[in-house]
Amino acid sequence: MTLIDLANPTRFLALAARVLPWLAAATVILLAIGLYQSAYAPDDYQQGATVKIMFIHVPNAWLSMFVWGVMSIASLGTLVWRHP
């Protein structure tokens, strides 16, 4: 299956239905591991516990930039192929 085949909503929904449970399970497992590691991370010698703010701020900043990029590509695809 090529990437352009996923423009067909039927094919995309069929693929998403197969992949979504696996991705949801991986998300829950990785989130639990990340929360455990961030809760038991040692304090910084200069900033103390405030350095743990980066465990939330930096991933959220990356996620927001990723979402902005995906939305830009999706809007370009909507304009070019007139796909709702």
Rank of each mutant, 00 (worst) to 15 (best):
L76H: 01
T50Y: 07
I4H: 04
S38N: 08
L30N: 09
T10S: 05
W22A: 01
A61W: 11
R82H: 09
Y36E: 04
T78K: 13
R82A: 03
A74C: 10
A61L: 15
L31P: 00
I56P: 01
T2N: 14
V67W: 04
T27C: 06
F66N: 05
A7H: 08
A32W: 09
F66R: 11
I56V: 13
A26W: 14
I73V: 14
H83N: 05
H83W: 00
I53A: 14
S64N: 12
L63E: 00
L76I: 14
D43M: 08
L3E: 07
P9C: 08
D44K: 07
A61Q: 15
Q37E: 11
N60E: 06
A26I: 05
H83C: 06
Q46R: 10
S75D: 09
I33T: 05
M1P: 15
A14S: 13
L35A: 06
A14L: 14
W68H: 02
Y40H: 11
A17N: 10
I29P: 00
L63D: 01
K52D: 08
H57I: 15
T50R: 12
V58M: 05
I29E: 02
L31N: 05
P42F: 04
V51P: 01
A74E: 02
W68A: 15
A49L: 09
L30T: 13
I53Y: 14
T50K: 13
L31Y: 09
W68F: 09
A7I: 06
I73K: 06
S75P: 02
L79K: 14
L15T: 02
G77N: 06
D44V: 03
I4Y: 00
V58Q: 10
G48T: 09
F66L: 15
I53L: 11
V19W: 07
T2W: 05
A25M: 06
P84N: 06
T78I: 01
A41T: 07
I33V: 11
D44T: 08
A25N: 04
V51N: 07
H57Y: 13
M71H: 02
L3T: 05
A14F: 10
I33D: 06
S75F: 13
Y45G: 00
Q37F: 03
Q37A: 01
I4Q: 14
G69H: 03
T78N: 10
W62N: 10
R82I: 08
Y36F: 15
L30I: 07
G34C: 04
A16Y: 11
W81L: 14
T50W: 09
A32Q: 03
L63F: 13
A61V: 10
M65F: 10
A25D: 08
S38E: 05
P21W: 00
L63K: 02
Y40Q: 00
W81K: 01
I29F: 15
L15E: 13
I29K: 01
M65I: 11
A25G: 04
Q47D: 08
V51R: 06
V80I: 12
T10A: 04
S72M: 15
I53D: 13
Q37S: 05
W81P: 07
R82E: 02
R82T: 03
F66G: 04
Y45S: 01
A32V: 09
L35Y: 04
A17C: 07
V51L: 10
T50H: 10
Q46F: 05
F55A: 12
T10V: 08
Y45C: 00
V51T: 11
Q47S: 11
M71R: 05
M1S: 09
L6T: 15
L30Y: 07
A26E: 09
N60D: 02
